[in-house]
């Protein structure tokens, strides 16, 4: 008994085909999965929903710089303007093109294009609005990623598997906030002090702010929040007693490009 070679190849081939097609079909027939990544989630009991409030009343250039520096240091974000070896120096326009940014300051009219008007307080125009990934409830980057390398966690964090990313940059086109960076160039020669607690990256993949998922796992606040002297408030939006909820209740806040329906979870008090 047994099967001959031909028969074996036939069965093996067919089952491979079915296996491959089957997975795709399964995904297709599980609409819950797709919906989960597309629709805003209602607040559920006992579920954490991380969010950040940027209190511009307490923000100044120095604080903004400290926040960005703290984040970029603990995440090994390269600074292309400061190579380890002077012979790797790059001209400024190239630095702008390759730049990797997780959190960075912009003026009001860049942070909230179209919202500025000539009669607003002069000082507001020049405040450093810290921009970062909004960890949207309905993130377009997750929707467009062809490998689920970008995904939304239960706690609302939009995270990335940098080992899965194929570098197609669909997410960069999809993100309406410019929050995503691509490794155009090997970042390692541009990291002055490599921080041992976080991996450095290679060329060819996308990265962004993760709300410090790795620090949250150790019950630590995000690095930028720690460095912000109270200008950044971080916490659980589903917890009534949390500081973010108290701050949002007390002050009026705005968010970036809400009309696009991504439901951003970084709030700005102006």
């Amino acid at each position: 008994m047994g099967i001959d070679r031909r028969e074996f190849i036939r069965i093996a081939g067919l089952s491979t085909l079915l296996g491959l097609g089957g997975k795709g079909a399964f995904e297709l027939l599980r609409p819950g999965q797709v919906e989960a990544s597309m629709a805003a989630k209602p607040a559920a009991e006992g579920v954490v929903r991380w969010a950040m409030v940027v209190n511009m009343r307490k923000m100044d250039d120095d604080t903004a710089k400290k926040c960005a520096a703290a984040c970029h240091r603990v995440h090994n974000v390269p600074n292309f303007a400061q190579p380890k070896d002077p012979k790797d120096a790059l001209p400024p326009d190239i630095v702008n093109r390759y730049e990797v940014k997780w959190i960075w300051p912009e003026h009001f009219h860049n942070a909230f294009p179209g919202e500025e008007h000539p009669h607003m307080p002069e000082q507001m125009k020049n405040l450093p609005f810290l921009l970062l990934c909004n960890h949207c409830d309905n993130p377009p980057c997750v929707r467009v990623c062809p490998t689920k390398a970008t995904f939304r966690r239960e706690d609302g964090i939009v995270n990335m598997d940098m080992h899965r990313c194929i570098g197609c940059r669909f997410c960069m086109a999809g993100c309406p906030f410019g929050a995503r960076s691509f490794n155009w160039k090997d970042p390692r020669p541009y990291i002055t002090d490599t921080y041992p607690g976080y991996p450095t990256r290679e060329i060819g993949m996308v990265e962004k702010c993760t709300f410090c998922a790795e620090r949250l796992a150790q019950n630590m606040m995000p690095a930028c929040v720690e460095a912000s002297s109270g200008a950044l408030v971080f916490g659980d939006l589903n917890d009534e007693r949390s500081q973010v909820r108290a701050t949002l209740k007390r002050y009026f806040s705005i968010r970036r490009k809400v009309h696009l329906g991504t439901n951003p979870q970084v709030y700005y008090i102006v």
Binding site: G24, E27, V34, R143, C145, K148, I166, F182, G204, M205
Partner: peptide
């Protein structure tokens, strides 16, 4: 498309993790 990829060595991830909510999945 292949030439534009940052990590062409990982191209098979598109088939390993098929993602119907990405238009790129359908385009392929």
């Amino acid at each position: 498309v292949l030439v534009d990829m940052g990590r062409p060595d990982r191209v098979m991830n598109v088939f390993k993790y098929p993602t119907p909510n990405s238009v790129m999945f359908w385009d392929i």
